[in-house]
Nucleic acid binder design. Structure first.
Length: 360
DNA sequence: TCTGGGGTCCTAGGACCC
DNA sequence: TCTGGGGTCCTAGGACCC
């Protein structure tokens, strides 16, 4: 069975680019989007423009730190509805695209990225050059939305996803089974999508530092040391192997949650309880939009020392009754031995499975 | 005044049942 | 005194990603 390459589309500096679109006078300036746009507040950078990155500003960095590194940056608040609208326009453009005349499947990964693959059943005797199609997608997204993106091409989703970063910004890059070891073999395992700092360290403990070493490792050793599921999974990553398909089915959420870091730590039981109830009401609104009741309630408490604990409970029966759920969340507070003022509270509601299950 | 917010998935131990 | 095996659910925590 022949298969065609997969593409991965990723918008460049998405949030900052959307802001510049509606405020053209910001073009070329260091722009930092995060929190409420106030760098004196507790919040972090969501996206920094390339101009701000040149000063060392990075996603996830406290706004305060960003302001020190780049005092002249324009700080803007996160404006969710605007990004959602821009994202929807991008995804609609991708879905409408035709690859050598054939329809495509689009799997949305987040606001600003998606996999694109030829829909099964297409006539593979016609030429489907992925590099030509990648350039076409870049042009169509730019024309429809004014946003620049980069495109990765791979023999599977894993390769395409990793390739995109090599193409950034505004570029196209291709990885393949044939080029994998030459392109990836010398890189640290951390370069793989799914390997973070902890797993990188754990693998290093097994003498595995590079992608090539991971690919050449004994899968039985990985299974024994890391686990029967994750061990073989990391081994596949090392080889650039991925058999998952581009799945266009709309995402069905398992759970929703709301959490908030307070500008001033909370130290009063009544206030803490009131905040838990307020957060719960917001999450209930979110799950009401899904039309499914909650089966489990979770509470997260982070104190001034950044110690974080989570408590959760399965409900006797699923419900979306805001009072019942708020009571359940507050009851979980009683299972947390609080010794310091509270920095963050979070409430999470896990929903019952939809009638057809998740099957993805 | 270090360290956001929204998610998913895996692991591991204990309870409980047959 | 010693002492099964499998299976599922619940809970807490960890890791990762955008």
């Amino acid at each position: 069975m022949t298969s065609t390459p997969v593409l991965h589309v990723d918008l460049d500096q998405f949030l900052a680019a959307v802001e510049v679109l509606r405020r053209p006078e910001l073009a070329g300036l260091p722009v930092v989007v995060g929190g409420r746009g106030d760098p004196t507040q507790r919040a972090v950078v969501s996206t920094a423009s390339y101009e701000a990155r040149a000063h060392g500003v990075r996603s996830g960095m406290p706004l305060r730190t960003a302001a020190k590194k780049c005092p002249d940056a324009v700080f803007l608040p996160v404006d969710l509805p605007v990004y959602e609208e821009a994202s929807a326009a991008v995804m609609a453009t991708l879905r409408a695209a035709r690859w050598a005349g054939d329809p495509v499947d689009v799997e949305v990964l987040g606001w600003d990225e998606a996999f694109v693959g030829l829909r099964p059943g297409a006539d593979l005797t016609t030429d489907h050059d992925p590099m030509v199609f990648a350039e076409q997608l870049r042009a169509e997204v730019l024309a429809a939305t004014g946003l620049h993106c980069s495109v990765g091409v791979g023999d599977n989703k894993l390769q395409a996803k990793i390739a995109t970063d090599f193409g950034k910004p505004r570029g196209i890059y291709r990885l393949s089974d044939a080029s994998w070891s030459a392109e990836m073999g010398h890189r640290p395992t951390r370069a793989l999508w799914g390997v973070g700092a902890k797993v990188q360290q754990r693998l290093a403990g097994l003498g595995i530092d590079t992608v090539a070493q991971l690919a050449a490792s004994d899968v039985r050793v990985l299974a024994a040391e890391i686990g029967p599921t994750m061990g073989p999974y990391y081994h596949r990553l090392g080889r650039g192997a991925d058999t998952s398909v581009v799945d266009p089915t709309p995402w069905v959420a398992r759970a929703h949650g709301r959490e908030e870091t307070f500008q001033d730590d909370l130290d009063d039981d009544a206030t803490i309880e009131a905040e838990v109830r307020r957060l719960t009401r917001r999450v209930v609104a979110d799950i009401d939009a899904e039309g499914r009741p909650a089966r489990r309630v979770g509470l997260k408490v982070r104190d001034r020392a950044f110690q974080t604990v989570q408590r959760s409970r399965t409900l006797p029966e699923p419900t979306n009754d805001p009072d019942v759920l708020a009571d359940a969340a507050v009851a979980l507070l009683g299972k947390v031995a609080r010794t310091r003022p509270v920095r963050l509270l979070g409430v999470r509601l896990e929903m019952v499975e939809p009638p057809g299950g998740y099957e993805r």
